[in-house]
């Protein structure tokens, strides 16, 4: 266990060093949530087209947009993995005696930290837009834990896709194909109750729904977790563990 944590920390640490040294990507990824909240959110809030109960529409979608930006930045993580494969970095990692599980987990943790930057951007934006945000430390801690877990989950999913498609071109196509349906078939920008039955079923098996649900309760004043935090976090954790197990098997096939 000690060795697993040490190796994972080593992998995560270099990713963080790179991120701090060149944060361009993080900031460019922050543009999209700004558009969703400032443009889309404000327009829809104005027309009162979607009933979101006590909570205003803008507050309702704020956790949804955070979850979306977590998904969007994590899902393209596979591109970096393919790039590393093309460079030979993956070969070198895999020839080391470090456990495959440490390599995969270390990458997931570093993606998780990328997600935290997204969370910081959304919190700032929410403050500027006077969206009523919960400020209790345990609620903020819960949001950060959810974002960390969600980023790790979706980046590991992305790693699995990268291992299957192996080229950047194919990955770009599949990445685009997956993100939008995952986003729209979730509770990010409208409640589950408004969905037709089939879409609600899809949303119920979409991990993004559980991330949004947890964030909605933890992030905004008057927000509520429909499934309950225990269910939300358990689903996310179980899906993450399963994905890590699959990725550990597939990661070595990247260099074959």
């Amino acid at each position: 266990m000690d060795r697993f944590l040490r190796e994972s920390a080593a992998v995560a640490e270099v990713e963080l060093i790179k991120l701090v040294r060149d944060p361009t990507e993080i900031f460019s990824r922050a543009v999209q949530p700004v558009l969703w909240l400032v443009v889309f959110g404000q327009v829809l809030a104005h027309v009162h087209g979607i009933y979101t109960g006590e909570v205003g529409y803008l507050a309702f979608i704020t956790p949804g947009i955070l979850a979306q930006s977590v998904l969007f930045s994590a899902i393209f993580y596979g591109i970096a993995v393919i790039w590393e494969r093309d460079l030979g970095v993956v070969h070198k990692l895999l020839v080391s005696p470090a456990r495959r599980s440490s390599l995969v987990f270390g990458k997931a943790v570093s993606a998780g930290f990328r997600g935290l930057v997204q969370a910081a951007v959304i919190y700032l934006l929410a403050l500027v837009m006077h969206i009523t945000i919960r400020q209790e430390p345990h609620a903020i801690f819960g949001v950060l834990a959810g974002v960390l877990l969600g980023s790790a989950l979706f980046s590991t999913f992305s790693l699995i896709i990268a291992c299957i498609v192996k080229t950047r071109e194919r990955f770009m196509g599949i990445g685009q194909l997956l993100t939008m349906p995952m986003f729209f078939a979730s509770n990010a920008i409208y409640p589950l109750d408004l969905m037709p039955g089939w879409l609600r079923t899809v949303a119920q098996i979409n991990p993004l729904t559980y991330l949004v649900d947890a964030l909605r309760g933890l992030m905004i004043v008057g927000g509520e977790s429909v499934h309950g935090y225990a269910v939300d976090f358990t689903v996310l954790l179980v899906v993450f563990v399963v994905l890590v197990m699959v990725a550990v098997r597939l990661y070595p096939t990247l260099v074959e």
Binding site: K18, G88, V89, K92, V95, P97
Partner: peptide, 18 residues
Amino acid sequence: VRGRIGYVPQLLSADGAL
């Protein structure tokens, strides 16, 4: 085996950003 070998792939495996 991995603990006893060193490997330099044909591709460039050093990380340029570090």
